[in-house]
Design a protein around this nucleic acid. Structure first.
Lengths: 193, 193
DNA sequence: AATTTTACTTACTAATTAGTAAGTTTGTAA
DNA sequence: TTACAAACTTACTAATTAGTAAGTAAAATT
């Protein structure tokens, strides 16, 4: 038929949304099929195994992240502004839906994920960590950021604030994420080494 | 038969471990039955619905937490030491297993939890948050802690560090949690208001 | 024009799942 | 000692699940 050459992408996008809202274990091919008005087997045509879809979702996020890092406009920004863009684009943007970030969704159910997803997911988190640590290091050198720990430790702390900030915002108040976000920025401004 | 009057408790304990390691959606009554050498229906005898077991697990944790808060020995400790005990008892103790804390496990799959579990879980998180905020407030007054945000914000930040710290430790390095823990303490020592 | 490939649908299977109904055995109370 | 209740097991059901095999229609290739 080939009436719709974007079905595969629609499946990937909805798959990601379902992973972020319900988790990898808790979403089913039927959820996707019914929402996209296609049949179960159509999803299996594009992604024979559920783990194939999972890997595609993680890979898509890695690519999106790497494109952001290569974006010249992004790289012209100050360290401070790049941190803000990261917080808003990679994490805060999911606040409007009842979603968490992909890192938060997948790390919570890490032991039950298929090995191939675990491996891809490790790649993703280590890339984000490494980038954030280098941003913090550079920003500290330029006196934009102030913090007392190593850049690697501060990167871990900010990342965990983002991840669980979204999770907690879903349980209690939507504003909890913004509260945490503002707290991070305030500390980066005022801490002393 | 009544040969074992602790079966119910064993089910609750294993249920909690499974929720923390695999998640609420991803564990089944069969997992419990096979590990405890009992039958499926034996679990349904004690907990007719899966959500009944979920609620029991959350309630058990609330009680454990409240008993800690009422413990005279615990209350004689300094704010600094109470924070350390909380970090180690409520969170860090699960590091040895491939588990996260209950807050991290349940908040990640919050939207798919039965309503009755959601409500009980909200109680739990708000109690922890409130207690931590008051500890930080008191500790700041006594010059034990130093931080630039409100105690409520700092409580949120430390909590999210604990929650996602355990999640990330499972994905990357076990030591990530300790790194975050030590970072929190270092910042509390050295930040300026 | 004939053939093959793409992108599906129809129709299914086998496994896993929460949950139930009807027993069975043991301990306890009358 | 009889009745009853507690704590199960046996044996099931209905629903959901990932995954498959075979067919079909349109599009691209030859």
């Amino acid at each position: 038929m080939a009436k719709n050459n974007t079905t595969k992408q629609e499946i990937t996008d909805l798959g990601e949304e379902l992973i972020r809202s319900r988790g990898y274990s808790a979403f089913s091919y039927h959820d996707i099929a019914s929402q996209l008005n296609i049949k179960n087997a159509a999803i299996h045509y594009h992604f024979p195994l559920k783990e194939d879809l999972g890997v595609a979702v993680v890979k898509k996020n890695i690519e999106k992240f790497e494109e952001l890092l290569k974006n010249p406009k992004f790289n012209k920004l100050s360290e401070w502004d790049r941190l803000n863009v990261m917080m808003d684009e990679v994490f805060g943007k999911y606040l409007t839906q009842e979603c968490v970030c992909l890192v938060g969704a997948l790390s919570a159910e890490y032991p039950v994920l298929p090995e191939i997803i675990q491996e891809e997911f490790q790649q993703m988190t280590s890339k984000i960590r490494a980038w954030l640590a280098s941003l913090l290091k550079e920003g500290k050198k330029k006196k934009q950021f102030s913090f007392v720990t190593t850049p690697e430790t501060k990167a871990l702390m900010i990342l965990s604030n983002m991840i669980a900030g979204l999770q907690m915002a879903r349980v209690m108040n939507r504003s909890d994420f913004q509260t945490i976000r503002n707290g991070i920025l305030k500390e980066l401004k005022t801490e002393q080494s």
